[in-house]
């Protein structure tokens, strides 16, 4: 549904230019989703780094990342949390977004394919004729699980993909509505503890170990009109990143994450935290782009280097 919606949004964008909502001075509206990788941003807010730059961060939490880019284009957000696949699709469809900043590394160690224990699903080959759950078809999770199936001797054409929201995947798996699921960190931890389930593989590790699934982005139009504000945002975010890197494994970080994700702290303590990536990596993005091309997710070629914001 969202892919179609995005198509409509893009088509409309080309036809008519949409007036941007005028942001109040010194306030930045940032869309976020409840995920632990946003910890540096929350740290920056909590410890006043943004305030010291004269910025007020107005957080707009949403349940999923799907509305990040439409919201950005519609002027609801100044800066959005989004994933690499959505960003590349947007650029290919003529929406001029720029990737501003990277997130903590380690996606490859957190996101896993899970299945029922004892059914012998170990590789992509074992999934022939089976059903695999992804959160959204034709998006990042779908793209990488297909590539993983290919790399491990299977054929994605023989696998049925079903859209299931992350929180429902474990139940769907146990009720045998699906046979495997590509799942995010919180639920991978839960599945690891469930005697009926097992972790099959960490697909990113096998497909693209240094993948950067998420970035902060903004439209070029916004960036050019707010150069100073963007620079201050990145400066404060950098301090947040430094705080984050310095507190990995420490109580302050666990309680910060538990606070904004509302997760029980015991669960947060089991998460794996790795330092923030130094930059948005063009090479990794090109790999993602090539995978998308192969799956027919990109209608036009994208110059990845031009997508990455350079101060």
């Amino acid at each position: 549904m969202f892919v179609v919606a995005r198509g409509i949004v893009c088509a409309l964008l080309i036809v008519c230019s949409v007036p941007c909502r005028a942001a109040e001075p010194a306030t930045l509206r940032v869309s976020v989703i409840p995920t632990s990788v946003l910890a540096p941003l929350y740290a920056g807010i909590k410890y006043g780094y943004f305030k010291e730059e004269g910025l007020n961060i107005d957080l707009a939490p949403t349940a999923g990342g799907a509305i990040g880019i439409p919201g950005l284009v519609g002027g609801s957000y100044d800066i959005a949390f989004s994933n690499n696949v959505s960003a590349l699709s947007a650029v290919a469809q003529g929406i001029d977004v720029q990737l501003l900043a990277p997130f903590p590394e380690g996606a490859a160690d957190e996101t896993a394919v899970i299945a029922r224990k004892g059914e012998g699903i170990k590789t992509g080959r074992d999934l022939a004729g089976k059903t695999v759950a992804v959160n959204t078809n034709r998006n990042v999770i779908w793209l990488y699980v297909r590539e993983w199936i290919r790399k491990t001797g299977g054929d994605p054409a023989q696998v049925t993909f079903r859209e299931v929201a992350f929180p429902q995947m474990i139940d769907a798996l146990k009720q045998k509505q699906i046979d495997a699921a590509f799942q995010i960190n919180v639920f991978v931890i839960a599945a690891g503890k469930d005697p009926a389930l097992e972790i099959v593989s960490f697909p990113y590790r096998e497909v693209q170990p240094k993948v950067q699934p998420s970035q902060f982005l903004a439209t070029r139009k916004f960036i050019e009109g707010n150069k100073d504000k963007v620079a201050r945002f990145l400066k404060a975010l950098k301090r947040g990143n430094e705080w984050f890197d310095a507190h990995i494994g420490k109580d302050e970080l666990f309680s910060l994450v538990a606070e904004f994700t509302k997760l029980p702290e015991a669960v947060v303590r089991e998460m794996k935290f790795q330092p923030v990536a130094k930059k948005v990596d063009a090479d990794e993005l090109e790999k993602t782009r090539d995978l998308m091309k192969r799956e027919g997710l990109l209608k036009a070629d994208v110059d990845v280097k031009k997508m990455i914001y350079a101060e």
């Binding site: 939490p61 349940a63 509302k262 029980p264």
Partner: peptide, 21 residues
């Protein structure tokens, strides 16, 4: 609110699902 929420019961429902509550 579930699709594009920042507040309200719809957003809360989704948030609590992700927060394992």
């Amino acid at each position: 609110e579930m699709v594009a929420g920042s507040s309200g019961i719809g957003y809360y429902l989704v948030e609590m699902q992700y927060a394992l509550r």
